[in-house]
Each structure stands twice: as C-alpha cells, then as structure tokens.
Design a protein around this nucleic acid. Structure first.
Length: 329
DNA sequence: ACGCTACT
DNA sequence: AGTAGCGTC
C-alpha cells in the first residue's frame, strides 16, 4: 500500500527517452512484488517452470531490465535488509490480507469467477527467500549491479541519489520522498506508452505544500506509515494543514488532544537518521550468456531464443563501450 | 508485465 | 510508427 500522500503530491509526465544516460536506482522489493502480482494468467496462476517454481519475477526482471538498458538507462537494484521492529504490525497485516486472498482465489476458481480469481491471486502474492535469491542470481548473470541495504531499500536508494550515484529512485511508493530522494519515478516499465511515467521532485512537493522535509515526515507520522498507525480522520491534506499551522507533529498532536502509541521521534528517526551502506560499488558487467541460458532455459524452462534476444540488449553496457562513452559523452 | 506477430 | 491480441513459464 505505502504512504497515502497522493493528494499532496504532484508529478510531471516524462518519456522514457528522457532517462537516456541516467542511472536509476530501482526499489527491488517494490519491483519484484509488481511482477509477482501481475505476471499471471487469467485465472491468477503465475508463470511457473515444469517443477512448479514461480518464475514471474525472473521474467519481469529479465525483460524490463534489458529493455531499459536498450534505451540507454543504467539500472541498479536495491534490496531490503532487515525490517525495522516497528514494521511488524504492517507485515502481519499484509500476511493476513495474503492469506485471506488465497482462500478467496481458490473459491473464485472453483466457482468459475475468472476475473475475481485473478484479482485475488494478485493480492495473494508473497515474496519468499527463494524469489529474492533467484532475482539476485539473475541480476548477477545479467551483469546488473545490486546493493543490499542495511534496512529499508528505499532509504539506501535515496542516499544513492543524494550522493549523485543515481539520478532518481524508481518506486511505486512515496516513502522514498521521506527518505530524502530528490527525484522519484513512478510507473517505470519496459514500454512507456501504456501507463504514464511520472517524475516527482521532492523540492517541488515541499515548496508546493510550504513544508520542510522534516515537516513532510511529520505529516506522514500523522497520516500513518509502515511503522505507525497515524491519527484517525487525518489524511494527507488535513495532516499538511495541521503541520503548517502548528509547526511540528508534537504541537499538532497537542492541538488535536491526540496521543500516539509510539513516540513520533522514533518514526522521524527512521526516515531522517537511517543507516545506509557507504562503501558500495556500482559496476555494470558483461552478461554471462552461457550461465544465464543454463539458469533460465535449462532450469526454469524459458525459451532460449527469448533469453538470447533479451541478453543482446545488454550490450549497451559493455565495459568497452562504456569507456568510449566516457570519452565522447 | 512483457515479447512477438499481425494488422492499420 | 502505433496498437491489439495472444502466449509466456
């Protein structure tokens, strides 16, 4: 679900071509979850190999990544580390939604309600350690760099934008704005034509709403995040107005005569004083064609032709060509 | 979601 | 060049 900030966030439509030459830090968890939920058949069955292993995420990563590279975009994936203790309630809630959706999915299939079946199947998607490992293995074989964050992947990705190692964070969730990403990209896809690609500038959001980044975090604390519940009846607009009027979350709570289960300062710290890896290195390598075919075609039943044509698109990031670009721009 | 083919 | 429809695993 993510942060409910839609009402106070504005975006600009951009074209995929405008990202040529740019490095994009992709929120791996967010991306993989999208693939798991939507790369499915009509009745909700995900893509699977002959042994019954889910392969939707591998398909998504292979084709989207190669397609982005072909368009001159340099992707880096950022994986989540250990979840914060305060995220437990959110995680429990999501697990319950998944479990209920799984029951509804099977029921819908039995009753022949195909559209419902797919809808519930999408909600039942879960990310297993196997799926994470397979995704990392594929990225290695493709020569695409990935970073393992200490905690939230979005926090690490935002830091990388701040440091100039990435131009923007690509995610569907607004959380990265709280983590300080100056630019975030919504709806990234292999083909830009289908859904509009949205560019969101943090500074613009802050100016538009008359808030500092610290105050934006305070708005989030009132509205609710993955780490706290928020105040009932306070949405993005009401939250913004409260913080603008009273200055910070503590004064706003006092005015509302409301109390929170958790000290707001703890939530602030998650977004403003988070841990990140500083000594990462980003390098795009030549894909290991042979091993990639072994992994995707031999082990997971992908069509070898499709794998080869996807891998061929990665040639744009060959070390030889990269050094040429350094000379000629 | 994405690739591929066919069609305008 | 842009898109609709079907298959992908």
């Amino acid at each position: 679900m993510g942060l409910k900030f839609r009402d106070i966030v504005s975006s600009h439509e951009i074209k995929l071509d405008e990202l040529k030459g740019k490095t994009v830090a992709l929120d791996a968890a967010n991306t993989i979850y999208q693939f798991l939920s939507s790369i499915r058949q009509m009745d909700g069955t995900p893509l699977m190999d002959s042994q019954g292993n889910v392969t939707s995420h591998l398909s998504g990563i292979l084709y989207r990544t190669s397609s982005l590279v072909e368009k001159g975009i340099k992707p880096i994936y950022v994986f989540d580390g250990k979840a914060h203790v305060l995220k437990k309630d959110t995680q429990d809630g999501r697990r319950q939604i998944r479990e209920e959706a799984e029951v509804q999915w099977k029921k819908a299939v039995d009753e022949g309600r195909i559209e419902d079946a797919r809808k519930f199947a999408m909600r039942s998607s879960r990310m297993t350690p196997d799926i994470i490992e397979g995704s990392k293995k594929l990225l290695d074989l493709m020569g695409i760099p990935y970073i393992q964050a200490i905690s939230e992947g979005e926090a690490q990705a935002s830091y990388m934008v701040e440091r100039g190692d990435a131009w923007c964070v690509a995610s569907q969730d607004y959380d990265c704005l709280l983590f300080g990403a100056s630019r975030m990209l919504k709806n990234i896809a292999a083909r830009g034509s289908k859904s509009r690609l949205e560019m969101i500038n943090l500074n613009e959001i802050l100016e538009m709403n008359g808030l500092t980044r610290e105050q934006l975090v305070d708005v989030a604390v009132l509205v609710g995040t993955d780490f706290n519940e928020g105040i009932k009846g306070v949405g993005a607009k009401k939250g913004r107005n409260l913080i603008k009027k009273h200055g910070d979350v503590f004064k706003a709570l006092k005015h509302l005569k409301a109390e929170m289960d958790i000290d707001p300062q703890e939530i602030r710290d998650i977004f403003l004083n988070h841990d990140f890896i500083e000594d990462y290195d980003i390098k795009w390598n030549k894909p290991d064609k042979e091993e990639a075919i072994k992994f995707l075609s031999d082990e997971h039943d992908f069509s070898a032709d499709r794998v080869v044509s996807a891998l061929d698109k990665l040639k744009k990031l060959n070390p030889a060509q990269k050094s040429l670009e350094q000379w000629f721009g």
